[in-house]
């Protein structure tokens, strides 16, 4: 594997955006960062700045109010980047499905690479999702070289 790709896989910096979830999934994401699961051993850092992030982690459904923010954050992330929808809400709208103000899953607004189902998604699942996202990233990285 080329150094470039390897570096990308070893250092996914996360931007976590809460699209109006019930906070169940957010707590699980935080749990993934705690000593018990220690996501940092994979180089994962919750960076909080779209301009430096590689991985957009979204919880909660897209709605009429926040879709533009979601879109803007996504646009502000420089390539290569991957998007992870965490929780049923982010994947499909979940229990907010068919509410008048929701649009549904976040894939209505931005392209999603990995869906992590569950209400709420468990930390192990989330870390698993990151691993999947990284595979996607390495494919992207290799394609970029061709």
């Amino acid at each position: 594997m080329k150094t470039k790709t390897k570096a990308r896989l070893k250092s996914p910096w996360v931007l976590h955006y809460d699209c109006g979830s019930c906070n169940g999934c957010d707590i699980e994401i935080l749990a993934a960062l705690t000593p018990k699961f220690d996501a940092e051993r994979f180089g994962i850092v919750n960076i909080g700045d779209p301009k430096q992030a590689d991985l957009l982690v979204v919880t909660g459904p897209a709605n009429r109010r926040n879709h533009r923010v979601l879109k803007r954050l996504y646009d502000q992330m420089p390539d290569p980047k991957v998007v992870m929808a965490v929780g049923t809400c982010a994947s499909t709208g979940g229990i907010f499905h068919n509410c008048p103000n929701t649009l549904g899953g976040i894939d209505k607004v931005i392209p999603v690479d990995v869906y992590v189902p569950g209400c709420a998604a468990r930390p192990e699942q989330i870390i698993d999702g990151v691993v999947l996202a990284l595979q996607k990233l390495s494919e992207m990285s290799e394609k970029e070289d061709d």
Binding site: D49, P50, K51, V69, R72, L73, Q76
Partner: peptide, 10 residues
């Protein structure tokens, strides 16, 4: 040159 970070509300 990109817009600054304004919490996504630009």
């Amino acid at each position: 040159i990109e817009t600054p970070y304004l919490a996504g509300e630009n």
